[in-house]
């Protein structure tokens, strides 16, 4: 074989490898950047609840599953998921074992306060004025929710709006696995 053929073969092999990688790569949109927080202890969340009921903290919710929901007043899908969250919370408030904790990304104080005024008297909601909680939880864009085990570990991350049925399925899987 001449030198040119060797080089051509080499180039061919590299390109075939490239094409194979392309062909097997799933679309980037489905490869959600997995959060590194899975199975790690959930970062602390504590403060006065905006919806009344005094001070809340995640640490004191140990012993039950907690759904932490990050949202923002300006986010349209958050408004869409809100009735579902409400229903999920009501459904489990009676049976117990599952709590819901909202965190509002308060990039501007006015509207968030107004929002809370309209939606007061339900599950506790914490303010996150500095974006510090969102940062600790690696929130990319609201709404993002985390399911936290009774022992305080993060079990899963849900990007985008949640539904009651989806959350119930997730809960069933978590319970089946013995968390």
């Amino acid at each position: 074989m001449t030198r040119i053929r060797w080089i051509a073969t080499g180039v061919g092999v590299v390109v075939v490898a490239l094409i194979v990688v392309f062909a097997v790569s799933p679309p980037a949109t489905t490869v959600a950047d997995r959060t590194p927080l899975i199975d790690k202890p959930a970062p602390a969340l504590a403060g006065p609840s905006l919806t009344g009921g005094g001070r809340v903290s995640l640490a004191r919710m140990r012993g039950s599953f907690v759904l932490v929901n990050f949202f923002a007043h300006w986010c349209v899908p958050c408004q869409q998921e809100e009735p579902q969250l409400e229903a999920f919370w009501r459904q489990h408030r009676r049976s117990g074992g599952v709590a819901v904790l909202g965190v509002v990304l308060e990039d501007q104080p006015g509207p968030a306060a107004k929002w809370v005024e309209e939606h007061g008297g339900r599950y506790p909601v914490l303010a996150d004025p500095e974006g510090d909680y969102a940062f600790r939880y690696g929130v990319r864009s609201p709404p993002t929710s985390f399911l936290i085990s009774p022992k305080g570990r993060i079990l899963s991350e849900i990007d985008g709006p949640v539904t009651v049925s989806g959350l119930d399925r997730l809960l069933a899987v978590a319970r089946a696995r013995g968390y």
């Binding site: 040119i4 051509a8 094409i19 062909a23």
Partner: peptide, 21 residues
């Protein structure tokens, strides 16, 4: 498209390898 790219690359590399001499 990846199939077409494969054909184009194969044709290119093959032709150059064939006529290299």
């Amino acid at each position: 498209l990846i199939g077409f790219l494969g054909v184009a690359v194969a044709a290119s590399v093959g032709l150059i390898g064939w006529r290299g001499d």
